[in-house]
């Protein structure tokens, strides 16, 4: 049986797993984006807390994903909970870091102008600083999404949902029938999803940066 026959025979299952994978990644990135941006916003003005937040996220980042998932089994059990937790934790680092970098990169002159016109701290943040830092933050979210794609596949190790199931079941019976087909299907599925998501971010970036400016940089 070649790859095409394999895919054709299990089409419904593969589509289901792909949708699950996409939905898991999207939701995890969304959670991570909200958390990450909030943490970034809360800490970017003060060097110490922002260094702490980045360091903690950095340490989490260095834990191998299999180990992380394994460590999450005792408190959270198997299935969706440990998968989502792990993906969110990994996705935090690029988002927090880019939020801090992006907000710090906003020209202080513009913040001064915003305050001088009579905008409150909050309004200056939402109307001026975040929109200007947005391209950098968006890049962070994009990197986080790519990460989440990969980690999401590994999540099958703790019985998480998604295309990882194909990969792991294939790897488990390596040498057996359809082992390579299953692994390939899972891997290719993840790769295609990653490309689709990336394309989405390119479009999102284009539609959410008016005036086609670059990273809040001044002309």
């Amino acid at each position: 049986m070649n790859l095409w026959e394999y895919v054709g025979e299990r089409w419904d299952l593969i589509v289901f797993e792909t949708v699950q994978h996409a939905s898991m990644v999207a939701q995890c990135v969304l959670i991570a984006a909200v958390l990450g941006v909030l943490i970034g916003v809360a800490t970017y003005r003060r060097p110490r807390p922002s260094a702490l937040a980045t360091a903690v996220a950095g340490v989490l980042f260095t834990i191998p994903s299999l180990a992380m998932l394994g460590l999450l089994i005792p408190p959270l059990g198997l299935g969706v909970a440990p998968s989502v937790t792990a993906i969110v934790l990994y996705a935090l680092l690029p988002i927090i870091r880019n939020t801090v970098v992006g907000l710090r990169g906003v020209d202080p002159l513009l913040v001064d102008a915003a305050r001088g016109l009579g905008m409150s701290r909050g309004r200056s943040l939402t109307r001026v600083e975040l929109p200007l830092a947005w391209p950098v933050i968006l890049t962070g979210i994009r990197v986080a999404t790519q990460l989440a794609m990969g980690i999401g596949a590994v999540a099958a190790y703790v019985s998480g949902p998604g295309l990882g199931e194909q990969i792991f079941s294939g790897l488990a019976r390596l040498g057996g029938a359809n082992a390579v087909n299953a692994t390939l299907t899972g891997t290719l599925g993840v790769a295609i999803l990653a490309l689709l998501f990336d394309g989405f971010f390119v479009l999102l970036g284009r539609f959410t940066t008016p005036g086609g400016r670059l990273g809040g940089a001044r002309a």
Binding site: D107, L109, L110, D112, A113, A114, V128, P131, L132, T209, P210, G211, R213, G216, R218, A219
Partner: peptide
């Protein structure tokens, strides 16, 4: 200085 217009 330099107007400080919001580029976005």
């Amino acid at each position: 200085q330099q107007a400080g217009l919001f580029p976005h």
